[in-house]
Simulated assay, not measured.
Amino acid sequence: MAKRAASTKRSKGGRPKPSAAKSTTQGKASKRRYSRSASDEVGSELHRAKRGTARTKSGAKVNSRNQAVAIGLSKARKKGKKVPAREH
């Protein structure tokens, strides 16, 4: 068997942990528009839509990815996560 290359350790959320050697704040700091937890909320709603278990408020089945994203963002807003306001 061939030896595998050393992989980065993954945190519970599935993202690689930042190493101490790398600095993430080089140059101008960029602000996140959406929090990571809001992104996870959208991802879980997309997963539910793919499985066919996602429902709208009225109980109708979610038919598109855009619907699933909108529902995920709405749930994130209700939980108080960092998400921009809706555009009307």
Rank of each mutant, 00 (worst) to 15 (best):
S35F: 03
S35R: 01
K9Y: 02
T24W: 07
G27F: 03
K22C: 08
T24R: 14
P16D: 05
K22S: 10
A38Y: 02
R10D: 02
T25R: 15
S19G: 14
R36P: 01
A20C: 06
A29H: 02
S23E: 15
P18C: 13
S30A: 12
K17E: 06
G13C: 11
G13R: 09
K9H: 01
G14D: 10
S30P: 05
T24C: 04
Y34P: 01
K9T: 05
R15W: 08
R15N: 08
A38I: 00
P16F: 03
Y34V: 04
S35D: 03
S30N: 14
R15T: 10
S19H: 07
S23R: 15
R15F: 10
S30M: 12
P18S: 12
A20I: 10
S23K: 13
T25Q: 15
S19Q: 12
K17Y: 00
K31G: 05
A21T: 10
R33G: 03
S37P: 03
K31I: 09
S39L: 10
S30T: 13
A20T: 08
K17P: 01
K12V: 13
S19E: 11
R10K: 14
R15Q: 11
A29D: 06
P16Y: 03
S19I: 09
K12T: 05
A38Q: 02
P18E: 11
S35L: 02
S19W: 02
R32G: 04
S39M: 07
S30H: 06
S23T: 12
S19N: 11
S39N: 07
S35E: 02
R33F: 05
R33A: 11
S39V: 07
R15H: 09
P18F: 07
T25G: 10
A20Q: 11
K31H: 09
G14I: 09
S39W: 05
R32E: 10
K31A: 15
K31P: 02
S23M: 09
K17G: 03
R10G: 03
Q26F: 12
S37T: 10
T24N: 08
S37G: 02
A29T: 12
P16T: 06
K9R: 08
Y34M: 04
S11G: 14
S11E: 14
S23Q: 13
R32N: 10
K28N: 06
R15K: 14
S23L: 14
A20P: 05
Y34A: 00
K9D: 00
K9L: 04
R32T: 07
R36A: 13
G13A: 14
T25F: 15
T25V: 15
Y34D: 04
A38P: 01
